[in-house]
Amino acid sequence: MENLSQFFGRFGGVYLLPVGLALGAFVLIGAPSSWATLTIAGLSMGMMVFLMASGLSLIFGLMDVLNFGHSAFISFGAFVAATVLSALSGWVGADSVFLNSMALVFALLAAISFGLAAGWFFESVIIRPVYHDHLRQILITMGALIVSEQIILALWGGTPITVLRPHFLEGAIILGNVSVEIYRLFAFGLGLVAFIGLYLVLNRSRIGLLVRAGVENREMVEALGFRIDRLFIGVFMVGSALAAVGGAMWAGYETLITPALGGEMMIVVFIVVIIGGLGSIEGTLLGAIMVGLTANYVGFLAPKLALASNMILMTIILLWRPNGLRPAVK
């Protein structure tokens, strides 16, 4: 067993799992074009879920905060972006890639700005009084989530809202027998850029070093002369902004959103964080891709199992690795 583990470790270890999953699905699905479409859909879904989950993983890992209100940032990101896109509908539908892009940039910037501000407010007002008390964290963040959903209901109403997609992201690219939605490719690209950015910050900068150290031992980071409480605010704000961007991208993917969007996604987000391993960006990406691929493959092969597929995946992975696939701390 040890030798087998070392053998796989040499070729990428747990990072081989999505490859193995895709190869297994290829055999079961049989049709290469269906497999390719499902794989691309799974990867893009995974990247959007990664955006939503990465912040929660860092917040959970670094700050030991169980933030059940994280999904509020996803919902608000979706609604804020949808509102901006609606206000800029002329640009969104224009036959100009530049105007389309500007509408998208403004929508994402609005979601990011909202996420940063809401993250600051949430950490300062709601989370700070309940550090080190998990029960109160769960209660107060659940309460904040309910209030947030009611605010969304009050502002946007309860009827589903249609989300406009910028014109240049409509349609699909046909590669042989495979149809690839442009929006999915874009979502995948944006998630990848976010991952590379986060990876570089966490692994190549002093701030990142502090965050990684703080995930392991907050007290020691303070004893080295750093105010980790200030770092907490920054991480919380960035995590909230990422969730808001994830929500905005998910809104464009679904094209019809309701105030329950965040709550629905939260289960998937928690599964990703748990199977990826707390506080680890690489683990979150791995977990998100596994979840995205599994949901799509199982949805095709055994639709009745689709809803349970991620729970089953989480159970299997936790039985094998109780701390997740790639936890930040050994």
Binding site: E216, E219, M220, L224, G225, K330
Partner: peptide, 20 residues
Amino acid sequence: AEIARKGIAYVPENMGIFGS
């Protein structure tokens, strides 16, 4: 953190090493 910056270092009983 301010105490540390005044020139006091601390090596705790569990060593406080960042394993990762």
